[in-house]
Design a protein around this nucleic acid. Sequence first.
DNA 1: GCGACAG
DNA 2: ATCTTGTCGC
Length: 267
Amino acid sequence: MNDAKEPSSSNSNFSNEFQSSQQMDWLRVQDSLKGKLITEDDFKWRLPTREKEGSCEILKYVGGVDLSFSKDDSSIACGTLVVLDLTTHKVVYEDSSIVRLHIPYLPGFLAFREAPVLLELLDKMKNNAHCFYPQLLMVDGNGLLHPRGKFCFGLACHIGVLADLPTVGVGKNLHHVDGLTQSTVRELLQAADSPKHVLLLIGDSGCTWGVAMRSSEGSLKPIFISVGHRISLATAIEIVRMTCRFRVPEPIRQADIRSRERLRNNQ
DNA sequence: GCGACAG
DNA sequence: ATCTTGTCGC
């Protein structure tokens, strides 16, 4: 009875080793991409709210990306890209792609699972020189707010660097970082008398990772905003606030709704 | 050692 | 991420 094969256990040794060597590769990739990261405003447009001398282009087209998953087969996903016109608050572009994912979700490595589909959608639009190509992209997932923050970063930074696009990370849950937890942050946000409902996320190390923000009056639960690429935290906050009809900023919310819808009607 | 851990 | 209905309220 001893020689009974335990496929799951003998497998998991190999599988675990494979997984950790895979993760070491991923850490190197994140580290190398981080060398290209820009964490201050670096774009040629300006916010519509900010008056300024000179005639420069105004931020008008804001993109949002998200993935939804099949309830039956969790490896089937629909990635969606939408672009919102800030002046009309309407969706002016939508594209999506249903794919089979071969990479599992591992905390800290979301980008390796989700970025490829989304980058393809962006690429397609750029290659067509589409006139609504986003000037900025909001990503469902964190940017600099990452548990191994010194040399790593999240999905929003990953996409920003690879697409060379200004990006903002928006999380609906806090990825525990540097002593910050969801419950303590929520308490602090309640206690804070910040009129803008914003709390700087400063970790035990003194590092500022992003902010927690009550984005709409209705919701006690905050969203977590962090710098993605080619943008400062202050600008990121301003743009997120500008696009929040509800708790989740509209570009991401629309991408979420539409990707879920497409998955329902198409598989 | 154990639990926690974006989507 | 996904499983899940109605319900209270502006």
